[in-house]
Design a protein around this nucleic acid. Sequence first.
RNA 1: UGCCUGAUGGUGUAAUGGUAGCACAGGUGACUUUGACUCACCCAGUCAUGGUUCGAAUCCAUGUCGGGCAGCCA
Length: 609
Amino acid sequence: MSVEPIDTSATAATPSLSDFIRSIVAHDVAEKRYAKIVTRFPPEPNGYLHIGHAKSICLNFGIARENDGRCNLRFDDTNPAKEDLEYVDAITTDVNWLIAGWADQCLGLKAPGSTPAALTTNGKTDFHLDAVQPAAGNVLLSTESARRAEPFSASSYFDQLYLYAVELIKRGKAFVCDLSPADTEAYRGAPDRPGKDSPFRERSIAENLDLFERMKGREFPDGARSLRAKIDNTSSNMWLRDPLLYRIRHTAHHHTGDTWCIYPLYDFAHCLSDYLEGITHSICTLEFDAHRALYDWTLASLDLPRAVPHQYEFAKLNLGYTIVSKRKLLQLVQDKFVTGWDDPRMPTISGLRRRGIPASALRRFVIGVGVTKFDSVTDVAVFDHAVREELNPTALRRLAVLKPIKLTLTNIAPGEVLECDATNNPQDEAPTTRKVALTREVYIDHDDFAEVPPPKYFRLKPGGEVRLKYACIITCDEVVKDAAGLISELRCTADLTTRSGGPNVDRKVKGTVHWVSASHCIEAEVRLYDRLFTIPEPDADGEFKKHVNPHSLEVVTAKLEASLAGATADQRYQFERLGYFALDSKDSAAGRLIFNRTITLKDAWVPKK
RNA sequence: UGCCUGAUGGUGUAAUGGUAGCACAGGUGACUUUGACUCACCCAGUCAUGGUUCGAAUCCAUGUCGGGCAGCCA
């Protein structure tokens, strides 16, 4: 990794990223092996995208943008039983959001409704589907653009895939098998024990052709027959033991409807989809390593006329205190541990977005962890750091009190309003300010007062002094309690000579606290999120549900400075001394504001309890 | 007990036979009208054992430990 900051913008110079896959690509570029580098991001629409997919997206789109290439968005939709249009839409939105302003110029889409065109290449019949050059900007989201381009999908290759299967049969490399699923499994053997050939393996080509056509013709029920590759049942690689190519599923597909009752399996569909699109580098995660031999076998067996794609594998992302598995995230949704896929506690792209994480922060993080074949667990602190790095320079500073204690400044008259200048962002080169009202009654945060302070406590205590940020230094004269013994009010004196412009403005006190005027504030719901799991590796024992943090969400009614009434969803705020906050894109409404805490500020002070 | 794959500070990574570097975390201090930010300093590593070589994190051998592979999922 280079020492320069990671490039997360569209216009900045290409970052000097280096990893084993980029080295391979660089080598291929140097050798001029391809006219253009083409990668793809191929999610199955059976769930929402998560932070692990973000790594894959940034790898594939990153390689494309660094090499003036293209990255196709393709739905790997070959299993209608698990897939749904809801997921197609959600994934499309997520990908668009993550790459917007960074790599959308490399996004490969196809013409709406298009399928691979038949052509003759090097004297052979060939199929190819090229990408269209879409309009710039929110390509995937506007209906105008959708008329001109749409994501690729394996299901739009079903005709060609069927033809390739027939070709494999004709070449004696595939056969129709009548073994039941259970028998197929039994015949396959085990990793340390060879499998044995199916009794149907030596059927004639003519019979295979006839049976396969009848499979397609809805003649047989689910599971009755399958199309299998004829490879080697004694191979030490299980995926070479006559793997299935097609199975019968009388299930409607979200895209092709009832047109098909046979569907290709991943290993057959994926390599050929890559080929049809002219993919040069097919990048996937480590668990597909064993499949690479089958990927190569399938393409080689068809004797295709164009250059074939190659598969490379990298280690998927693991993050501390987080689950990164679509299947398990689905369980969290179904079992109501969270409110949905886009719950701000979820590591889904939609959840992170809703929590207020900028796309640039997500990119910064996943690019920063690097690409290797080492199965690692990244510390969440690295993610937190990336988020703060993006938010600190851009977030507007605002005053907000999460858990209010009323404080009366006894030397300020009721109704009197003292205007204070508050800085909008001290990180700006020329910071601007706004006015906040200081009045007789204000709120400070519960955590900023201690009747019995721990050692080294800089905040307010009986008889102690503290600065109200942007206002003045105050002294706590009296702690007023209600009948139950709970603190109901703090009576303090304001030293107005310490205000900005006052003679004693430079007087130093150890602590500075945030505050809001009781009469010039608004109320809002604020959702305080904590990590979803209580241990660093929630699924280490396979029981991640037992480690869900029961305190992952705390909802408070906060007091906010009045200017926040005009808060907008795309603006990020730093509530001073508390953290970064964003309006909830789903539940917040004008007049009923709801903020999500994106992340707390780093807090080096740890009181001893 | 088969095959594939991997191992660099606490964590994530860089170094492609030639000075083991960066980031995060942690620690100490400076600064501070955010206990934030920023700055300075500190901390701490090549899985083991052999071999090749003038020289090994890198190449070879053996071992150890980790991950993956037996869906008609992807």
